[in-house]
């Protein structure tokens, strides 16, 4: 690749780009997975928000698509040290989904088809910071990248952006998820390099 001018790629390159500490830039989209890829038919897909009082709010696939969509372009940072810049998504803001949810909870535990979980403060899902994303780069979200829909919360390490998202439980107390119970940081801010517990 050394003889090819980076300019031919027509995309942002590493020079001059500020990345979180310890990260490197990648142009492809690595697939990381802790288990087999669930294959969820849209007609079977359902998303549930459960409040701390047990109240449930459910959306079918059709109901999700009928909500106003947004098209965020964001940088993403994986704890395995790759970063990908300017990724284009389409999805529904959690602000929209949670607008009519009555809650005083401080924490959220995200559940996925296949059993994966991850936790984060509820405030990190609000104020234009998080989406239920169903399209990437103009295409339906592929199963290996979390399709039919994944959480997108790009200001935290990408393990928080749960693939195959199925629901969110709102809670008064924090409860660690899949990687958070195995040594990874409870919050995971890439700019503070919060990879592991104690960072």
């Amino acid at each position: 690749m050394g003889i090819v001018s980076p300019g031919f790629h027509g995309r942002r390159r590493g020079a001059g780009v500020k990345l979180p500490p310890g990260q490197y830039l990648t142009e492809d989209f690595p697939v990381l997975s802790a288990g087999p890829t669930p294959r969820i038919r849209p007609e079977d897909w359902e998303f549930t928000v459960t409040t701390e009082t047990g109240q449930e709010h459910r959306w079918s696939w059709r109901e999700l698509l009928d909500l106003p969509g947004e098209t965020p372009t964001v940088d993403i940072h994986c704890v395995t040290k790759w970063s990908k810049l300017g990724t284009s998504w389409e999805g529904v803001s959690l602000d929209t989904l949670l607008a009519d949810v009555d809650t005083a909870a401080d924490y959220a535990l995200v559940h996925s088809y296949g059993g994966y979980t991850t936790n984060l403060p509820l405030e990190d899902l609000l104020d234009g910071q998080a989406w239920i994303a169903y399209r990437f780069d103009g295409e339906d979200l592929a199963p290996e990248h979390g399709g039919p829909a994944r959480l997108l919360v790009p200001h935290l390490y990408f393990w928080k952006s749960a693939k195959w998202v199925r629901g969110i439980r709102l809670m008064d107390e924090d409860e660690p998820g899949f990687w958070e119970t195995a040594g990874y940081h409870d919050y995971g801010d890439p700019w503070r390099e919060q990879r592991y517990q104690g960072d």
């Binding site: 990381l32 997975s33 802790a34 288990g35 704890v79 990874y184």
Partner: peptide, 10 residues
């Protein structure tokens, strides 16, 4: 599963 932040044996 090795393509992950850790090793996950199922």
């Amino acid at each position: 599963y090795t393509h992950a932040p850790g090793l996950v044996a199922r």
